[in-house]
Design a protein around this nucleic acid. Structure first.
Lengths: 225, 225
DNA sequence: ATTATCTATAGATCTATAGATAATGC
DNA sequence: ATTATCTATAGATCTATAGATAATGC
């Protein structure tokens, strides 16, 4: 009955976190109660409450994992020149994270309303991510991939990139909704990279434009309808 | 006890819709039950259920109003030249609509999961809005405000504009969350126009750039923190 | 001894309906 | 007669806890 993970018997607490994440992603946090989580683990609700005070606490722990993952993905390397390939690699990683914790942004506002810690932490997390995007853009300027531009501009650009990234999933879900095959896959999610490249395209230096255009085509989304 | 609106006594059905919209916007749809709506109107739950089969039906009617409003805002005029001022006016209008029905996008995915009609209608609504944005951009090209660009590009741009517009509220709520004064106002929402102008800026024709830069400053958001 | 788990349940909602009663429109 | 409203309530959850029991670690 014990779930194994990398040769180690998982602690019940971790099993609860993992099962919750799976259920949240699959059914939506709103549709998953502590009862469901316990039942899914063949465990009594009483036991679940022995390990967590409530659902909010489970969600907070999941957020901490998500935060660690994305912070890790966005750790920039030394001071070497940044290429457009690096940038796309960062995007791939971030979309991977977004996929693994996709329940989170769906009910974000409600979740933040429920938990002050999460509210504070998430706010700082957002600012940190945005700062990372700014840094990446500035490094691309430095290596000549992106043309020089004012700081104000870089910040506003970074924000638009952030908006596109974090809401791409919701767009896919709602714009595809009603289709026969309404399932979104990780690969479909990555077509969001196309949107980000479109955002950056006007600022790509002449010498790099062809390469970026080719990259863009790689992520072109399958046409809707 | 009868609510009056423009000299006409409102029908109970309309009172329910209006009260629901107010409560949803203020407290979030998830936190508002049919009981709350009835209580807020000093009405029995039984009476509410006489007028609506359930909450989903109330929400659908609210959506129809929202849809009508935005469709109306996006009705483009004859074939006269489109200026950048026109474009900003459309943005102002759309953000007005977004503000009045701001509960809607917050729980959009859940709401669409609950109601097939809404799913289908919303999908068509999205496509219609995106088409309107494309048309506006093309008209701006025609009148020389925006430089010529490929159709593919215009579509992808329109999508990024749509993402920025519809998710600006959520960004404000979550990025400002935790502040002492966490209340978002309609004027703050309109700082989203700044983001849209940033998106369009690289494509503005030389002769119009100064005017657009001035317009942009008008919508510069108050600095966070 | 301490930690983990289960059983059982109180208390709080919420949804949706049945059935009675009041108000309204010809 | 028809439409609108209220009262009362069944049935379905869900959260969170108390208290008993089992398993584990020195």
């Amino acid at each position: 009955m014990s779930v194994r993970f990398k040769w180690v018997v998982m602690k019940t607490k971790d099993k609860i976190i993992l099962a919750s994440l799976d259920l949240f992603n699959e059914k939506g946090e709103r549709n998953v109660t502590t009862n469901h989580i316990a039942a899914h683990l063949n465990m009594s609700p009483g036991n679940l409450y022995y390990h967590f005070r409530n659902k909010t606490d489970i969600i907070y722990e999941i957020f901490l994992q998500y935060e660690m993952l994305v912070d890790h993905y966005l750790r920039l390397p030394s001071n070497s020149d940044l290429t457009i390939e690096h940038m796309v690699f960062y995007l791939e990683s971030v979309f991977d994270g977004l996929w693994s914790y996709r329940f989170f942004h769906r009910d974000l506002e409600y979740l933040l309303d429920c938990d002050q810690r999460l509210r504070r932490d998430y706010r700082e997390f957002t600012m940190r991510c945005m700062q990372s995007i700014v840094t990446i853009l500035k490094r691309l300027q430095k290596s000549g991939v992106i043309v020089p531009m004012e700081d104000d501009f870089v910040s506003a650009m970074a924000l638009n990139v952030w908006l596109a990234i974090t809401n791409w999933m919701a767009f896919l879900k709602t714009a595809h909704a009603g289709e026969e095959n309404n399932v979104i896959t990780k690969d479909m999610l990555k077509s969001g990279i196309y949107q980000v490249i479109i955002l950056e395209l006007p600022y790509i230096a002449e010498g790099h434009k062809d390469k970026v255009l080719t990259l863009k085509e790689k992520y072109r989304p399958q046409p809707f309808v």
